[in-house]
């Protein structure tokens, strides 16, 4: 019976999203089914495209895994975007020392650690502002996102500018020896994929089977009771933030070493913000997160060619993602209301 109800709700949600998307496609005078066809073809049409989807899926999943820790304790870690940026900044900082050296693997490994630390430090600032300074984590995180963005801009135009011209296109490219190795025929780096899979495994274990998962949940559900029980909410909040920032920082590292090979203003690619939607849609469940992240990545990649073939803006993917989450929240609320009466 329960499965039947969930299926009904899912169909209802998807119908609502389908209806809305078709409506706005009609509004701009585009053929809806052709647009859907191009999204599917553009994301799953060939192995190269699937690899591209997975490259997007990696940072999205890493951030989403991090967010699971903070959501579990009841924190809205909107600062994840900035944490990813700081991961990229720290990674670039370290890689700059490796340009002249002949130990690229050593520097690459170190740069990943630096990235995780960078993200974690930024998350700790937001966490400390919350626990020590009474600043709501949403405003602290949001503020720090913009500070991180400003820092990246300053670095690109100031100390790390390209010789000759400083521009929005970023810092000097790193030499290929400092690139994360990738499978040349589909341009996918196995190391990144490996890290993302590890992140899922670790998060699933920590949240479902380890003590920390239970503690985070206990504090999230009732901080006062957890405090009386002997758990220290402040400490666990910081711990959750460090996990979230660490994973986001890793995502930033992969963006630098695996994809762009330099620091640029849009290095975080909105994946942090998008990961918040992923986790909400997955109902904070670590087993569903990878699938939702894959679906979101498909939408993102599939819509890239919409401007070329149909003269539509590629932001259609964002509209579908947002509508999907809103519809899910509405259906969820409707179910709760029905249970109450």
């Amino acid at each position: 019976m329960k499965i039947f109800r969930y299926a009904c709700e899912l169909i209802l949600t998807l119908l609502a999203v389908f209806f809305f998307t078709t409506l706005i496609l009609h509004l701009v005078g585009a053929p809806p089914f052709e647009a859907y066809y191009h999204i599917v073809k553009g994301s799953l049409g060939s192995w190269v495209k699937v690899a591209h989807v997975i490259t997007t899926w990696i940072p999205l999943t890493l951030c989403a895994c991090g967010l699971l820790y903070t959501f579990r304790i009841g924190l809205w870690n909107i600062g994840i975007e900035g944490q990813m940026m700081m991961g990229a900044v720290f990674t670039t900082f370290l890689l700059r020392f490796g340009v002249e050296s002949d130990m690229p693997v050593f520097f690459l490994t170190l740069s990943f650690i630096a990235g995780a630390i960078g993200g974690a430090v930024w998350a700790m600032i937001a966490g400390s502002l919350k626990t020590k300074g009474g600043v709501n984590e949403i405003f602290a995180g949001l503020g720090l996102n913009f500070v991180a963005q400003g820092l990246i801009l300053w670095l690109i135009f100031g100390p790390w500018k390209r010789p000759g011209i400083a521009s929005m296109s970023g810092t000097e490219l790193f030499p290929p020896k400092l690139w994360l190795s990738y499978l040349s025929f589909i341009r996918l780096s196995p190391a990144g994929l490996f890290l993302a899979l590890i992140a899922i495994g670790v998060t699933a274990f920590m949240l479902r089977y380890a003590r920390i998962g239970l503690s985070l949940r206990a504090i999230g559900n009732n901080p006062h009771a957890a405090y009386l029980f002997g758990l220290k909410p402040d400490r666990y909040m910081l711990l959750a933030m460090i996990f979230a920032g660490g994973f986001a920082g890793l995502a930033g590292s992969i963006q630098v070493t695996g994809i762009y090979h330099r620091l640029l203003p849009a290095i975080s690619g909105n994946y942090g913000y998008l990961a918040l939607l992923v986790v909400m849609l997955a109902n904070y469940n670590v087993r569903i997160v990878p699938a939702v992240a894959f679906f979101f990545a498909c939408l993102n990649i599939g819509s890239i060619q919409l401007p070329m073939v149909l003269q539509l803006d590629s932001s259609l993917s964002g509209v579908i993602q947002g509508t999907l989450v809103l519809a899910t929240l509405a259906v969820h609320a409707w179910r709760n209301l029905k249970l109450e009466t």
Binding site: I24, L312, D313, S315, G318, V319, G322, T323
Partner: peptide
């Protein structure tokens, strides 16, 4: 996020 993308798309 959604209204921003909607604005880009419709506009």
């Amino acid at each position: 996020l959604m209204t921003r993308d909607l604005a880009y798309f419709l506009g």
